[in-house]
């Protein structure tokens, strides 16, 4: 997921670099307040740890090997703000000294892997842990943290690639940088991440977390999730980004209507002809009376709210059960 220079336009890189500035500032303030002076060297050593995690070759099905990023693991072990620091430094060293990932693209890479990934992983871990309050819940939580956070980070990278040909064209309309649009970049990034990389990241996160939990539980970050603010910010960015789907031609992979299937296959499979016409309250994610873009944002917002309500209800049920158990 290390984006090299010249895949993205310099202006994209600058934008993300600027976006990272407040995050870095906030992280350094929080870390200073949160960590005693005694633990300051830990940041450097943790960065070395996060660098080395990427060096471990893990066997994959089919006889090849791959490596995990470890952003989720560090976020769970050290807390999200320290993780921002540690991963940023690991990425900076890779860019400066090993030529992995670009210098100008450092801001973008940090945004994906040092901000989005640890924060998603950490809050997801805490949320899921709240829902299942037993030992197993922790393992499920750490797996989900690893799996989903790496996928969200990959999605961000894919979108960053995908918008390039839409935004930056030369005089004759040819793309200047990464030439593939969202319709190509999203499946190209997401399919391997959903199927292989995410699972790998999840397994590594669970394995290392459960080992440390058994061997030396007192080193794990214990900061409370007092504010879910950042989680909501990430959700907000995702919601605002939903109309990007409109820029891409064609429908999402696997979400074809019967007419599109006809175009793709040349015929409509019989079972699909009348098939599964499900009348959703928001057809094609739009509200008719609204502009298409706002419709998308509103649909995403409604979806997120419904999911949050479900989570809250589940949490309540779980809480009641726990009280009864006592």
């Amino acid at each position: 997921m290390h984006i090299p220079d010249n895949y993205l336009s310099p202006s994209t890189c600058a934008t993300f670099g600027v976006a990272m500035l407040p995050i870095w500032r906030r992280a350094s303030l929080t870390v200073k307040a949160e960590i005693t002076r005694q633990k300051m060297p830990l940041l450097g050593v943790a960065a070395a740890f996060s660098f080395l995690i990427m060096m471990f070759n893990v066997p994959l099905p089919g006889g090849t090997t791959g490596h995990a990023i470890g952003g989720a693991l560090i976020a769970i072990l050290l807390g999200p703000y320290s993780a921002v620091f540690a991963v940023t430094i690991a990425l900076a060293i890779q860019a400066l000294f090993f030529g992995d990932g670009g210098i100008l693209a450092l801001g973008v890479n940090c945004f994906n892997m040092a901000f989005i990934m640890p924060f998603t992983a950490f809050y997801l871990f805490k949320l899921t842990k709240k829902l299942f309050k037993n030992q197993k819940g922790e393992y499920i939580a750490s797996f989900l943290g690893g799996y989903i956070s790496v996928n969200v980070a990959a999605l961000f990278a894919a979108v960053e690639f995908g918008v390039q040909p839409l935004l930056f064209k030369d005089v004759s309309g040819l793309p200047l940088y990464s030439p593939y649009g969202l319709a190509v970049s999203i499946p190209a990034m997401m399919i391997p991440h959903l199927l292989v990389v995410g699972i790998l990241e999840g397994i590594i996160t669970v394995g290392a977390y459960s080992y440390i939990k058994k061997a030396s539980p007192d080193v794990i970050y214990k900061g409370k999730v007092s504010k879910m603010k950042y989680f909501y910010i990430i959700m907000g960015i995702l919601i605002l980004a939903t109309p990007l789907g409109l820029l891409a031609n064609g429908t999402a992979w696997g979400e074809w209507g019967s007419e599109e299937i006809k175009n793709l296959l040349g015929f409509v499979p019989k079972g699909l002809e009348k098939g599964f016409q499900y009348n959703s309250p928001f057809k094609d994610y739009s509200f008719g009376f609204l502009n298409e873009y706002f419709g998308y944002i509103l649909s995403a917002l409604v979806g997120v709210i419904i999911i949050l309500i479900i989570f809250k209800v589940l949490g309540k049920i779980n809480l009641k059960r726990n009280i009864k158990g006592d």
Binding site: A208, Y211, V219
Partner: peptide, 10 residues
């Protein structure tokens, strides 16, 4: 492998 990583962290 994950044991080694955990050990490395400690």
């Amino acid at each position: 492998l994950t044991g080694i990583m955990g050990n490395l962290f400690i």
